[in-house]
Amino acid sequence: MSSINFFEKGEGQPIVLIHGFCEIGAMWSDFVDELSLDFRVICPDLPGFGGSPVFQNHFSMEDIAVLLEEWMEKNDIVNPIVIGHSLGGYVTLALLELMQSNLKAVGLFHSTAFADDVEKKQMRNRAISFLKKNGSEKFATAFVPQLFPENRRKELATAIETAVEQAKEATLEGLIAFTEAMRDRKDRLEVLEAFSGPRLMIAGTKDSSVKIEASRAQKHAFTDYFELGDTGHMGMFERKAETIWMVRDFCLKYS
């Protein structure tokens, strides 16, 4: 079993916040400070990111779900609310398929239940080629700023700088393996639709990674659906106070 690095704060209903691609658990620090007033909040580093080592060179979303289920069992994380950003949302849905009613609620934060289309798969392949040629640090420096809307990058410069530095904690092996896993993941809309528990979606109307049209096409599968106007892929920084409130309200309503 691979070692999962994580931090936690607070007591009560467990909430697991799963970071996205080129991110680490510490990205949720402001959310943790607020949510931990009412909940036990746990933020893992996915394998190959932050303090969690890569456990093998090739793996699937299903493999990561099994790993996290074992980690939750080991750390007495029972019936959690699981919310994931981007890649973290794909992991959340794989966990949902594996654990089903053993999850209390799930949330997708700038993520999708749909599989990659042909264009997105080609983009993943180009990213893998870039990583193999240029390495992880150069990739992080080029990739992360693009997640923020161009018209707000000057305003959000400090958040972007922090995100880039956190992205540099990723290993080359982890970045490549997760890019492959994202590319090859299956559609889990039916898994989401079949879940009887609460389901949260937070989408950005200017998100270049998860198009708003895709979010709207699966809106019916969520009990709680929010769109953030003029927001890109990083709503937790672009609309920090608003998104903290959305997540907190969702967790309070259903815990």
Rank of each mutant, 00 (worst) to 15 (best):
G88F: 01
F237G: 06
K186D: 15
P47M: 01
V16Q: 10
M182F: 02
K211R: 14
D187C: 10
M182K: 00
P145G: 08
L252R: 12
F7R: 07
Q166D: 15
E150R: 13
G20Y: 06
S255G: 14
L37R: 15
K74W: 04
E119N: 12
V118A: 15
L35F: 01
K253S: 13
H220M: 10
F222D: 05
F21Y: 02
F130L: 01
G50P: 07
V118D: 13
E213F: 11
T205C: 10
Q100I: 12
A115R: 07
H85Y: 02
A105H: 07
L67G: 13
A142C: 10
R153W: 09
I176N: 04
H233I: 01
W28V: 12
P198H: 02
E62F: 11
T92L: 05
S3V: 14
K132R: 14
A94G: 00
T243V: 01
A26S: 11
T158D: 09
I176C: 03
D117V: 02
T243C: 03
S111Q: 07
V191N: 07
A140R: 01
I202S: 03
G107Y: 04
K121M: 06
D249A: 13
Q13E: 14
E238I: 12
R239K: 07
Q218V: 11
L93C: 12
A163C: 12
F143G: 02
L46A: 00
E190H: 14
T92M: 07
W71V: 08
G107H: 05
E119C: 08
V164Q: 05
G107N: 04
K132W: 05
L189R: 15
L35Q: 00
L96V: 11
F6K: 14
I202V: 14
E193N: 15
H58L: 07
T141R: 14
N151C: 06
F250P: 08
L93K: 14
N151V: 03
K132E: 06
E150K: 15
V16L: 11
N79Q: 14
T205G: 08
T158W: 08
G84D: 04
L192D: 01
V106C: 01
V78K: 14
K121N: 05
L46W: 03
